[in-house]
Design a protein around this nucleic acid. Structure first.
Lengths: 340, 340
DNA sequence: CTGAAAGCGCTAACAT
DNA sequence: ATGTTAGCGCTTTCAG
């Protein structure tokens, strides 16, 4: 019973047909006669045959899988994107190979490796720090960026980062804040820069000043948000509200600020970016910008499948909308309440 | 320049040797003469040759990849495990295919599919709810469980869940608590049951009563922790401390309880399980049990590679130690302070 | 130390 | 509607 795994030959033999017929029964059942089709199917059932994907792929000159290059797999930020990718690739019969770019020494080299390794029919890059030149590989598979990447004309899925930042400023300004600070991601990062740009534009639109000393650099982590809070607490002249470029930083920020005896939002208003699950469980609940990460993954996978199907290296891009979510961490500034 | 991708034939031709020699140069360089070796190497460089993994795999009767079955990819719980897996599989030249079990209709069928699909040299299961019978597939690849699974003798990587729960109780009892409640995960889940068992044992060891009405059912999510908090608030006779089976639930719990005006730990002590990154950024910082998830992934990958290398279906298992982390969310009960 | 040759299991022309 | 056949690109005996 548990002999070796059956091959297409075994099925052909037991069904009394040729291997071609077995293959056809599997791929285009309509072109084989009903009688033979049934014979083949029962032979398949009898032998427990499963097609050998490797052989099939070799013959068809494809791999049946897609590689997603993640900068840092340990970062939960990416899990929802992976879920989105998986939800469209699996039904389309593609495997999802994940690779961590930054675990090795040279991320660019890793990218080059996967680009030329022929291990996948397409790549999805979540890492915006890779150098564009690597993509000049001849005969490379199609690539979709699932994040912003300056100076690249690859098909991509991006989020309205600048607009989200503007919405945050707008909300705070609408509440009466005129002294608004910002905690950025790491400088040079595309998300950082686009959100900073939106922040700046939002201030300008409301005629508010951009105070350089109120713009603190973080790196999207809770730790850096906590550090920003300590810097904030040391300021002689503090902003009444802060927009932080990630919810994680907002969590770290609020933790330190509350530990120091300040109240959010009574003493300082806080707006984050992302709408991580935790945002609605904090005290106070975090006002933030939602970016639908599952959607990012789905869209990236759809774009890539489009490229693969049409054997193209370029194609449409997609921009994912963000949504402002007002919760309890932003309120009118203290001065307004005093006046009231 | 950007002709088609070079094959081993092209390299053989430009180097003036046979394909066998090219293959040997790549796999066992020591057995080819230095002169030929160099000729082959420069031919490889010249042609930009990359071995076709599919063809190689077909010939060698392997796939070069490992499938990890994740119950829910969107759950960030798994991202660190994936990082651990990747960090050992990648250097070992194995691809990491991820598949979401619960996205489709029938998880068991998905497992059966991957077990027989021949798409991987081994499987890693993170889903403890799959039925053991599926594993009776003849000719299946080796499987490692990276979570507890009742009634299975597969090689596995498990965490000292019961012991972690005992440590939590012990800490609370040591602080003077005699009224300790528990919020479980979903009943039937192995993590839930083992932690509940540890909780019960811990109480017994300290001679404390197990009050059924102080044991609330959750499902590991923040939402369920919040729900547990509402139930807690409605209690006429409340425990002075709670051990929650996940940090997420502790976050949800503390949010609601604090919003209701109770102070943690002054009015109620809280201990979680996991040590998620956020634990140290909460106010107060969360006392919890650390389970090293990256280590779980690394260990699972190592065990699986061992099985693959020895062509075995059974092998050693690994138990990962947990660590108690005392922070600010647990303190002596109010009664003790009154007495003090 | 190197080459010739036989497939791995499958698919897709091309015949019939 | 079905069978025959020629590989996909590679590794690995087996000879030399």
């Amino acid at each position: 019973m548990d002999r070796k795994i059956a091959t297409i030959q075994d099925v052909a033999r037991t069904a009394g047909v040729s291997t071609a017929t077995v293959s056809r029964t599997l791929s285009k059942p309509s072109v084989v006669a009903p009688a033979t089709r049934e014979a083949v199917q029962s032979a398949i059932a009898e032998t427990g045959y499963r097609v050998n994907a490797t052989a099939s792929n070799l013959r068809r000159q494809r791999t049946g899988s897609v590689i997603v290059l993640v900068p840092n797999l340990a970062n939960p930020f990416f899990s929802q994107i992976l879920a989105g990718l998986s939800s469209v690739l699996t039904p389309a019969q593609y495997g999802l190979l994940v690779a961590d770019t930054q675990s090795g020494p040279d991320p660019d080299e890793r990218l080059a490796h996967y680009l030329t390794s022929g291990q996948a029919d397409g790549l999805i890059l979540l890492d915006g720090t890779l150098s564009p030149e690597v993509l000049r590989t001849p005969g490379r598979p199609p690539v979709v960026m699932a994040c912003e990447w300056m100076g690249s004309d690859l098909p991509s899925v991006t989020v309205e980062n600048a607009r989200g930042a503007e919405m945050a400023v707008d909300h705070l300004a609408g509440l009466g804040h005129r002294a608004i600070g910002h905690v950025t991601g790491p400088r040079g990062n595309v998300l950082t820069e686009t959100r900073l740009e939106g922040f700046t534009r939002g201030l300008a639109a409301r005629g508010l000043p951009l105070r350089e000393d109120w713009v603190l650099e973080g790196d999207f982590t809770m730790d850096s948000g906590a550090a920003a809070a300590r810097a904030f607490l040391r300021m002689a002249d503090r902003p009444s509200a802060l927009f932080l470029s990630s919810d994680e930083m907002a969590v770290g920020f609020m933790g330190v600020v509350q530990a120091a005896g300040l109240r959010v939002p009574q003493d300082v208003s806080v707006v984050g970016f992302d709408n991580i699950e935790m945002a609605q469980h904090l005290t106070p609940r975090l006002t933030t910008i939602r970016q639908p990460r599952t959607r990012i993954g789905e869209s990236a996978a759809e774009l890539l499948l489009g490229l693969i199907d049409t054997a193209a290296l370029t194609g449409p891009s997609d921009v994912i909308e963000v949504e402002f979510i007002a919760r309890g961490s932003a309120a009118p500034p203290p001065s307004d309440r005093n006046l009231g």
